[in-house]
Nucleic acid binder design. Sequence first.
DNA 1: AATTATATTTAGACTAGCCTAAATATTTAT
DNA 2: ATAAATATTTAGGCTAGTCTAAATATAATT
Lengths: 220, 220
Amino acid sequence: MLSTSEENYLKALYKIAQVKGNPVSTNDLADELSTSAASVTDMIKKLFEKKLVDYQRYQGAVLTSEGGRLATELVRRHRLWECFLVEKLGYGWDEVHDLAEQLEHIKSVDLVDRLEEYLQFPRFDPHGDPIPDRHGKFTIRSQQLLCNLSQGDRAEVVGVALHDSQFLRFLGEMHLEIGCVLEVLEVFEYDSSMRIHIVPDTKTLISSILSKNIYVKKYS
Amino acid sequence: MLSTSEENYLKALYKIAQVKGNPVSTNDLADELSTSAASVTDMIKKLFEKKLVDYQRYQGAVLTSEGGRLATELVRRHRLWECFLVEKLGYGWDEVHDLAEQLEHIKSVDLVDRLEEYLQFPRFDPHGDPIPDRHGKFTIRSQQLLCNLSQGDRAEVVGVALHDSQFLRFLGEMHLEIGCVLEVLEVFEYDSSMRIHIVPDTKTLISSILSKNIYVKKYS
DNA sequence: AATTATATTTAGACTAGCCTAAATATTTAT
DNA sequence: ATAAATATTTAGGCTAGTCTAAATATAATT
């Protein structure tokens, strides 16, 4: 059985590897987990003993297939709990991260499977991130950013690249949510801002900070 | 903020005080928490520092009003999570204790209030135990035991005095569940067993081990 | 009331997870 | 290629929560 702390290391390893590739450096882990490099070294050794990471001194760490499986399971739990909190308890998508962070560590062989069934097997969480199924498989969503669309393009919002609550609250205020359809009305070269039409009835200007962090699926 | 361990001590203090009264002895706590008396002494001192218990060396511990409030809140959380697990996720009443034991420690100011609303403010958990409201108030259920009924009495099952899963599974197999109505057909002095009619269609013999651990509300 | 038995506390130690400071390895830049 | 900068590990220590063994206080028994 893994401790909460061990689980958090696995998740961090998984997350960093996705962005920066393998091997994952001690310092990157320390940053991600807001801890010291020395603590990371200790824990990596422990995970190595448990065969959850491959590791050689000074060379960074890589999840083993078992480590990867466990990390994916944690992502699954996190995202399913986020669905539950938003869909059933009425939380906003900007409020659920910390709670899901706690709930994902609940130890049970089948709790999350039952939760998934109860939620009717959602494939994406409230932020548009894909939810791994029982076997760790998931659909990769479009990686195209809103900022890369051109005038006249129409697309659906499918995800966000940032998850901090300020950003999410701001998007919410602008009615920019997962699933909404938009059209690029105009692109301003000067500051890369855009005027967009959020179907059906909002037309607004958005800064590039926003458009660089919204994933869309372009209608062809 | 309290640790999971501190919270478990508060719950144990509350539980023991209800059964044996105050003050609660070090050994009783050690038994309840499956730990050593030495550990209990350490933790009680800590809770005393935090003003959650009154304590004098060798004289046992008593929850302060703040300690009692927190303990009641934990009971509330535990019972609401049990409701959720049974009613929404389809668990049996014999399967939910350990999961609720974990879920009750999730830190949040409003999670459990939202859960309560989502469950439509249940007043009793799946074992018939009363659920404290936001202010710690709850309805005390009938304390009458099935074994104290006489031939011809009719009553409703309102609770169980034991919570171990073997006992609960056995009751379930006999269709003896919270809310069911029964009538005492015959009482056998010899071994205090009873023949009962579980309305509408089961007639069966039950041992005194069962009838001593089922709370009923007699129809007058 | 003294003695024995029981309950409780103290003392000292252990583990997990974290820390800082110092040592060492690797990488980068001159 | 060597020096400087950076990254990583080691060494030693801290806290929370636990333990066992020993000491001490309370309760029970004669």
